[in-house]
């Protein structure tokens, strides 16, 4: 009986190995199953989902206007100090002092793309962009000023 079991063990082992080999051969013979995306070549056709969190940007309209009121909600919401609002006081037409941003400094090198600033923003002034190629040669290039030079707050945004 021992010999039969010995031979049966060998047979079973060989069959289990053959099944595995059949699977790898299956893929060897079917190049259509290849799933590799050739990244830098497919840049033009690369579609990232609209919710993808790449970096924080501040959309401006064609008149170079943004929606940021300088309320600092994003700065407070940020867990690691990536956003810094530098604000100033503007004199409105009625002669009142009004808080507005001078600069919204964004430290991309600190940002973890947690989306908390976007959630916190009461006036939808900032949003996440789908860019992801952030590598630069100098760290200082990662410190960005989100509002464009000379931009103003949009009409009607409080």
């Amino acid at each position: 009986m021992g010999v039969i079991r010995y031979l049966r063990d060998i047979w079973r082992g060989a069959v289990s190995l053959a099944r595995g080999m059949r699977r790898t051969l299956y893929y060897f013979l079917r190049p259509k199953e290849i799933i590799t995306q050739q990244y830098p070549d497919n840049r033009l056709t690369l579609n990232l989902p609209e919710r993808f969190k790449g970096e924080v940007v501040m959309p401006h309209n064609e008149n170079n206007e943004h929606r940021c009121t300088g309320c600092q909600a994003c700065e407070l919401a940020c867990p690691n100090g990536s956003l810094k609002v530098i604000y100033k006081y503007e004199i409105t037409a009625e002669g009142k002092k009004k808080k507005a941003i001078d600069k919204l400094v964004y430290h991309l090198e600190l940002c973890t793309m947690c989306n908390l600033c976007i959630e916190a923003c009461p006036s939808d002034a900032i949003k996440m962009a789908q860019t992801f190629e952030h590598s630069v040669f100098d760290r200082s290039q990662l410190i960005k000023i989100l509002n464009k030079p000379g931009s103003k707050i949009m009409e009607g945004v409080e």
Partner: peptide
């Protein structure tokens, strides 16, 4: 990868979604 794609679409990130 398929799960990661689903996550990316709904949560906006693939690994640390928050």
């Amino acid at each position: 990868e398929m799960i990661n794609d689903i996550m990316e679409e709904t949560c906006g990130a693939r690994l640390t979604m928050n």
